[in-house]
Design a protein around this nucleic acid. Structure first.
Lengths: 352, 352
DNA sequence: CCGAAAGAGGAAAAGGTTTACACACGTGCG
DNA sequence: CGCACGTGTGTAAACCTTTTCCTCTTTCGG
């Protein structure tokens, strides 16, 4: 029957194969098989104007038969939207960012969006390049704790359709942000430690360019104003950084230690154990963020808990076109576990 | 000068703005500004046939001036390649998969490729849908420990340009795989425990559909043949699963416990501590995979170490078009830390 | 029974880029 | 001096889909 028609339209150009390069069926294959135009196929499959049920059924059957799936690049080109967001994070191996990525990817998927991801290994240069590169691809870009300078961040903002930041603020129109109130977090931790009697506290600092570290520092200045002594020791954001920073930290003879985040704190606990320093008897230790494992360390880690689920959800909200370009502030809460207690009576040399 | 030319070509159609929908410059803007054809612009920027240095410089300046960046969707459509791979994993929050993702994303980025990611929350149905969906976008698809059935996996293989599996095998042409020899791993662990004197070992099983769990089971059967008693307790792959499975595990009065992976083992250690069961004095515990934190638990976790870096690198190799469609076997090695020791002399009820 | 409106479907343009082909110009060789 | 060839550039097709506009048929109110 189809053959008859083909003969009848003798002036029809001889169609060469309409398969795409990779041998996949195109919309033309479906159209030919269903004996309709490509417009109709598109309408049936992507739902535009109404199509008679009879034709629709024929199209669906044809699509099924040849295994047709629309080419996303063509759709993107035409629609001007890739249904994709980009996520850039300093360290994909860090549980904190892994959790955020998990959350945002789930949110995106639930709204039929894809997630493009890039890790930067804490390198601001790579971060910038990744962001600029991704910006052209995606409908929206999420930068987690970006380390790049503000001017560059503005360049990225200009290059992207929609920019959302996590744990960083930028005075710029059309940029949304979700930030955790680390100032509050640090104050809570310091007050908690202060109420236990701690006066000499070491803070293991995060990466130099991290905005969230600066917020923590503000909290510590508040604590200093309240009479506590804060000793700052350069550290970083990874487990290994914490492990390595312990020895120097101990030379300052603190009674308590606050790590940049829980990941670092786990490294700290580990090194302290090696050194024979008992937590919390000899030294109290606290982290920030409440990573999944923090409830499972020995002893459990006192920390400032912020919900990565909520973080992810809020970030996703910002991609809604109707969302205002403001900054969402998230407040965590103090979680006291076994790693903090009263300082030792007589001050002893912990490493002795 | 440009104006003169424009006047001279009086029959040139009046060009409407050539900006794209989002207001970004297109290749036409650059071409007009540099007074060349779009073909030349493309050649200068993407390097095809040679172009005179004089013209090239003019094009580069023009591109710079209007801030031109090629539209990736258009490039993808034309080239038939998106320079993107897709990664699907059961749980992006699991450090094991997070590490793999980190590695593969880094490898991909180093080769100017992007990484599209999807988490499935251990749901085979979502896994299948994500894979099929992504397959159309990407040049290659990496499925981490897929839980879907073999027939569906074959469908995915058929739908994707190139499929690579991690910790799963599939008899199918054109599918590459990287698998860890868990059979070997479990044997090593059992021999280690056996040499310490353990005869009753609980195994906390992984997800039902995990191929890697089946490999472990093979290892345990070998151990059983060698005279050890293996008690299987259903568990899962997450930290919380381990935590929850401990109580049932203890009812079997084992002297040692092997967890599906290190993540689970951390949960186990935590629950044991709550119950007052001392590791390794009352019970030896071992994990599998050597997660980053495993060296930092208390006590350090005895485990079967497999390099996620190597896993990621090997997986990336498989995407090389010249790579054979075979299965790469990776062997790990036993890492003995503090969590395993001789069983207690007199068998006591651990939870008493 | 006529005209208008609505419904169904097709033709073709548009989306931004790359590249095969064509063309023009100059150079070197026979 | 003519011809082949190489170099640099332009033209237009192609990639695959969606959507606008248009045509044709049907229906319904007057």
């Amino acid at each position: 029957m189809a053959a008859n028609r083909a003969v009848a339209w003798s002036n029809e150009p001889v169609r060469k194969s309409t398969r795409d390069r990779a041998g996949r069926a195109t919309i033309h294959d479906v159209a030919r098989l269903a004996e309709v135009s490509t417009a109709t196929v598109s309408r049936v499959l992507s739902g535009g104007k109404p199509v008679s049920e009879q034709v629709a059924e024929r199209v669906r059957a044809a699509a099924q038969e040849v295994g047709y799936r629309p080419n996303p690049a063509a759709q993107t080109l035409l629609r001007g939207s890739s249904q994709t967001i980009g996520v850039v994070a300093p360290d994909l191996g860090n549980p904190y960012f892994a959790e955020i990525l998990k959350g945002i990817a789930a949110e995106a998927a639930a709204d039929a969006n894809h997630t493009l991801v890039a890790g930067t290994d804490e390198d601001p240069e790579r971060e910038y390049r990744s962001a600029i590169e991704l910006a052209r691809w995606v409908d929206g870009l999420l930068l987690c704790a970006p380390r790049m300078s503000a001017p560059r961040l503005k360049e990225v903002a200009a290059a992207s359709r929609k920019l959302v930041l996590i744990n960083r603020v930028l005075r710029h129109p059309s940029v949304g942000a979700v930030v955790v109130d680390y100032h509050h977090g640090v104050r809570q931790l310091c007050e908690h430690l202060g109420s236990l009697g701690h006066q000499r506290i070491v803070y293991l600092e995060g990466p130099p360019n991290a905005w969230s570290d600066q917020q923590r520092q503000r909290g510590f200045r508040t604590a200093e104003a309240a009479g506590q002594t804060i000793i700052r020791v350069p550290c970083g954001s990874a487990l290994r950084d914490g492990y390595d920073a312990v020895d120097e930290a101990l030379t300052h003879r603190p009674t308590a230690l606050i790590a940049f985040n829980d990941h670092v704190a786990v490294g700290v606990l580990s090194r302290l154990r090696e050194l024979g320093v008992t937590v919390p008897d000899d030294l109290s230790v606290a982290g920030i963020d409440d990573a999944p494992m923090s409830a499972h360390t020995d002893p459990g880690l006192t920390t400032y808990a912020v919900s990565t689920v909520e973080l992810g959800r809020q970030a996703w909200q910002h991609f809604n076109p109707a969302a205002p370009n403001n900054t969402t502030h998230l407040t965590g809460e103090l979680v006291v576990r076994g790693s903090t207690a009263r300082p030792p009576r007589r001050r002893r040399t912990p490493q002795a």
